[in-house]
Amino acid sequence: MLRFANTEFLWGLLAIPLLLFIFLRVNWWKRKAIASLGNKEVVMQLMPQVSFSRPWIKFIFFILAYTLVIIGIADPQLGSKTEEVKRKGADLMILLDVSNSMLAQDLAPNRLENAKRALSQLIDKLHDDRIGIVVFAGQAYVQLPVTTDYAAAKLFLNTINTEMVPTQGTAIGAAINLGMQSFDFKNGTGKSMIIITDGENHEDDAVSAAKAALARNVTVNVVGVGSEEGAPVPIYQGGKQVGFHNDSTGHPVVSKLNEQMGKEIADAGKGVYVRANNANSGLNIVMDEIAKVQRKMTDTKQFKDFEDRFQFFLAIAFVLLLAEFFISIRKNMRLSKIKLFEVKNT
């Protein structure tokens, strides 16, 4: 596995087209200047040491050396091997509501972004637990299978938005069922779900789905996002808010937190229900409850012993720069007199 320790230095490679343009421009100017002196063949006889190929050779050496220096500074690293790592943790599935109502702004900046920020902080605190992500609106989709790759989890989390699921609605039951299908029940470790939603479930029987999950020893916890007063649901176009969703009478649709639904689902799944606000996401309370879930030692493969490889690139770059330094832009008159393949007439 290859990675760069200092990826920001790779932006230096963007200078290569500029250097090429400058070189071509100077080369064109030199040819034009020579052509302005008179007949090219006569002028070249008067300047036998002028070479058009040697500047190209020097430039190629320089560009290669420059590229290798940039790569070397970025510090390429190789994962030399994979090894089995023992982890003692639980399997955690996040079910995140991405319906349009999650854009309501009764939590700052809105319900969805508030939840994503809290989940990112939660992932930072994980050590041995495995995590997966399911997004849902009118339908449910697996965004991230259960994994211990927390960096990937945060990467996928950042890409979540309300446009991921084309069918609008809030199918919490379907999300629970899909989460259950995503678990590996053969590993024997404890499992739990965290549903983050405003609770406006209109699609299916989420309570029955939570009871079915509990029957397989999977607890279901619910974090309610929003307020009882609610807030209008904004409409975005091109990343800008252009208005609000209106009902049939022309009044803005107000999305309210359905706490009763959240509590019923949590009760059915023998989990906890907490209500998030701007000051507290409630996830700490949920994680305290999940800490009681049975944990089992599992084997996980991961890359270990990343080793720096910058020295090879810098060494080759040094050799190229040294060679470029000793290559003259003028012809060597002694060598030019040697005609290895010239046929002499006798």
Rank of each mutant, 00 (worst) to 15 (best):
E8Y: 13
L10C: 07
L13H: 02
L13K: 03
A15L: 14
L24D: 08
W29V: 12
K32C: 06
A35D: 11
V42G: 00
V42E: 07
V43Y: 03
V50D: 10
F52C: 14
F59E: 14
I60S: 04
A65Q: 04
L68F: 01
A74S: 04
D75N: 12
P76W: 03
L78K: 06
G79D: 09
G79A: 07
S80A: 06
A90M: 12
D91F: 00
L92I: 11
M93Y: 08
D97E: 03
A104F: 05
P109Y: 05
E113H: 10
L119K: 04
S120G: 02
L122D: 14
I123Y: 06
K125I: 07
L126G: 02
L126A: 07
H127R: 13
D128M: 02
D128R: 00
D129R: 12
I131S: 00
Q139I: 10
Y141R: 06
V142E: 00
T148K: 08
Y150L: 13
A153N: 04
L157F: 02
N158L: 11
M164N: 07
V165S: 03
V165C: 05
T170F: 04
A171Q: 03
A175L: 01
F185L: 09
K186T: 13
K186L: 10
K186A: 12
N187P: 06
G188L: 08
T189Y: 05
S192L: 08
G199W: 03
N201W: 01
H202T: 05
E203G: 09
D205F: 06
D205G: 06
A210C: 02
A212R: 06
A215F: 11
T219S: 14
T219P: 11
V220G: 01
G230P: 02
V233N: 00
P234I: 11
P234W: 01
V242Y: 00
G250N: 11
L257D: 05
L257E: 00
A268G: 05
V272Q: 00
Y273R: 04
R275S: 08
I285Y: 04
I285K: 01
I285C: 08
V286E: 05
V293A: 09
T300C: 10
K304W: 12
Q311H: 11
F312E: 13
F313M: 11
F318M: 14
L320G: 04
L320R: 00
S328E: 10
M333D: 03
S336R: 13
